[in-house]
């Protein structure tokens, strides 16, 4: 599949808000965290944006896993 160049025209805020809504989908929510991160990475989100979307989509299911800088 050819990378959609229009994705680069999307403002980052919209991309993140879309990721948040995406992550809140029950079916997505139950999928493993790695799968969700991998998918968002492929969609062009950076690690920071992925973390941001994960936080906004709801607290990490198991706090123990929430590693990384506070």
């Amino acid at each position: 599949t050819s990378p959609l160049d229009m994705e680069h025209a999307i403002p980052r805020e919209q991309l993140i808000s879309t990721a948040v809504k995406f992550l809140q989908n029950p079916r997505v929510h139950q999928s493993p965290l790695a799968t969700k991160k991998l998918f968002l990475k492929k969609k062009g989100l950076t690690d920071e944006e992925i973390e941001l979307a994960l936080q906004q989509s709801g607290p990490a299911p198991d706090e123990s896993q929430s590693s990384g800088p506070s």
Binding site: Q14, T18, K21, F22, N25, R27, V28, T35, F39, K43
Partner: peptide
């Protein structure tokens, strides 16, 4: 897995 990937793709694009 591919079908899940496709579902993710469509869901994300529909949110956009």
């Amino acid at each position: 897995f591919a079908s899940q990937e496709k579902f993710f793709q469509e869901l994300f694009d529909s949110e956009l």
